[in-house]
Design a protein around this nucleic acid. Structure first.
Lengths: 202, 202, 202, 202
DNA sequence: AATGAATGAGTGTTCATTCAT
DNA sequence: GATGAATGAACACTCATTCAT
């Protein structure tokens, strides 16, 4: 393996191990020793590739957010009517999130830290910003195409982002005790309500 | 002051101080000394009233959730049409949340811990459970009164809870850079979308 | 009750409680709270009668040693032949020690501290000094009466003291696993050996 | 130095330092910092080799007892008449004990703890058990050879153990104020009395 | 590159002691 | 006399980080 490749390989190895340990123990209780052990490396090796525990955490967040954005970008492509595309997005997203469900809880550690850590906050803002912009464009298109009502696109996008974040939250917390409710159903029904409204049409 | 009263007073004093310190520094970085100092007491006094840092954290969550539930219960009372009442709820809730905005970030610490701590998780589940039930009843009523479409009440309630949690989340994270968007607007517009739908009526 | 009497009563009450707690937990692990609780008093009350934990410890040792010396003095009285009186002493002593067996282990805490604490050491020296003197006198008498060989009385006394202390030690430590061996037997057989010697008389 | 060797070397280094500190200050007053400093290491290094203060204490006792037993075993070898060999033992033992006199007081800390700590008690029992057995065998041999009276060997062994423990105790406590009395004299004269008896032969 | 021994600052918790009531 | 709330010094132990090899 090339030098560069090995370095990248090791970093991934460590990041993956760290993510697993963080998910299991939380940022604070997870020791560098735990991470090293999980990665099958020595503590010194971990420090060879990352300056500090914080750098590992920051890097995990960065990569996580990058991946999420790529996912959304990818699955928001398409050419059907906007409402249909939004519904499709929900389905795909749900599947992808469910696949990494065991690593999801650490996202709330990031949110918790965000209030105090500029770097973390920046990354999160960037993520939500792009996320919102993307949805806003979809909505704008939908309005222009006459597929959606003439709503303020930014507000609508924010509401959609909020809706999805909320769904993820209560799903991860395992809030609902109806086992038949999985994340996809939650996403779908939520999007349905958003699209069609609850109020009786007169 | 009576013995009992003093004890309650001190506990409140400590809890309030701890909440402030936790919001500022996070659970981990907050030292018992910080809490004691913020409360104007000695560390020993803090330990006279609470067995451990964990007990303080747990108690804060318990009381916080109790208060939130009381709030929601209170402001969900009323007798206008359900959609109107829901909109009113949003306004009142937004105001109340904005008042305690500085203490809100710690809620994500709780969510982060919930994955690992049974006790924390239980409290959070109880909170969301009651919250959902309450909204579900409102929706049920709305349907019966012919004010809302005939949607599955539980699913609708979950979506509403998710919507509101999501709004709180992105608001606390300071996600949107449009300063004119406050929590109330976010709540209101989200509820509007939920109620009326995005899709063009044919 | 008279003022003076109450004070003495309380002191005894505390000392007794402290002794029990110390025997159970050791000097260090025993907290003033434990002592107070065992005495059925408040911590403040304990401090009303004793300046400090150390004073309690010191006082316990003082009284313990006084009592032991009184015992020995009393049971060394008599008028039979010295060997007989020594054997009788062993029996009585054994009985008395067995009665307070649960409180005996703390004596080794005292011995352990003695190396570092002048006050404790003094008390212990005084105790052993009187103890030795008393035995020395008995032995002297025995020699003069022609009941014992013409041995150096001081050395013999020291050996007897050592013998008895050693018996107490291995008995308290529960060293021997022959359950039929109680302290009395140990004392008796030891004294027998001392008196008659192991070596075959030619 | 090999890895294994360094580890053993460090452990010895720490144990030796700890023993010195414990002898000076007692188990409780001795801080881990003191031990680290005495060993010329950092506190972290001490914890690298020992899990806890307790483990250090336990290990010290184990090694101490092992060494004592080896000593006794070694010096009980020989082929003269048993009484002579016993006297020789006393002399050698006295010399060896006097060499480590500064570390002896901690033995009473162990005895004090033994009442409460299973592990400590076990080690002490094992020590006294082997000690007694060894003496018992000597005595048995002595009886068979016609060098000692026909006494119950186990009882006699216990008495001898008690005698020696008692001598050590009063010597360590510095009980006697006759400076000409050293441990050897005490051992010798005690053994003499045991062997020859105090009572006048008729 | 990688190891793991070594460092030492940091902190939750305990508890003897004090003191207002 | 007695209470128990309050104090604060003390300490065992942890763990991120460093560095010699």
């Amino acid at each position: 393996m090339e030098k560069q490749d090995l370095s990248e390989f090791r970093k991934d190895q460590i990041l993956q191990a760290a993510t697993a340990v963080f998910a299991r123990l939380g940022f604070h209780k997870a020791r560098m020793d735990d991470i090293a052990q999980e990665a099958g490396l020595s503590k010194g090796a971990v420090y060879w590739y990352f300056k500090s525990k914080d750098e590992i955490i920051t890097t995990i967040l960065d990569r996580f957010m990058d991946r999420e954005l790529e996912n959304i970008q990818r699955i928001s492509q398409g050419d059907g009517p906007i409402p249909v595309r939004l519904m499709k997005m929900m389905k795909t997203l749900a599947k992808e999130i469910e696949e990494i469900s065991d690593r999801m809880p650490i996202i709330y550690e990031f949110y918790a830290i965000a209030a105090r850590e500029e770097a973390i906050r920046k990354t999160i803002h960037r993520y939500f910003g792009k996320y919102t912009t993307l949805l806003q464009e979809l909505i704008q298109t939908g309005i222009e195409r006459g597929e959606l009502r003439d709503v303020p696109p930014h507000e609508a996008a924010l509401s959609l982002v909020a809706q999805m974040e909320g769904c993820k939250l209560i799903w991860i917390l395992g809030v609902f005790d109806h086992p038949e409710v999985d994340l996809e159903k939650l996403f779908i029904s939520s999007m349905n309500f958003m699209l069609e409204g609850l109020i009786l049409e007169v």
